[in-house]
Amino acid sequence: MEHIAQAVDPFVFRLSIFVLAVFVGYFVVWSVTPALHTPLMSVTNAISSVIVVGALLAVGVGMISSGSGWARGFGFIALIFACVNIFGGFLVTQRMLAMYKKKVK
């Protein structure tokens, strides 16, 4: 029974996470009330900027090869863009959501 011990490629794990998250996204987004579709777009914008983790890795590389300088440069610009999005996206969402009020009776 040697084949059972065979290691699974990490890619398969990532793919599983991805596929399951697509389904989670499908159900969660259908439950969003249409009145909040604009905040939904701005908050998805903000969270997709979690790509900032890639920017941080690129900015932080050690200067060991000729490519490192390039990586830092690209990473730095990506970091600025992602941070504009993170701060802008979450704050503008907060600003919008603060305006939704119930009827005062």
Binding site: P10, R14, I17, F18, V19, A21, V22, V24, G25, Y26, V28, V29, L40, M41, T44, N45, I47, S48, V50, I51, V53, G54, L57
Partner: peptide
């Protein structure tokens, strides 16, 4: 990057859009 936060978010945003 093999980063689950990014994979989950990408899938969420992708299906949301």
């Amino acid at each position: 990057l093999g980063n689950s936060a990014l994979i989950i978010t990408g899938a969420l945003v992708g299906s949301s859009g």
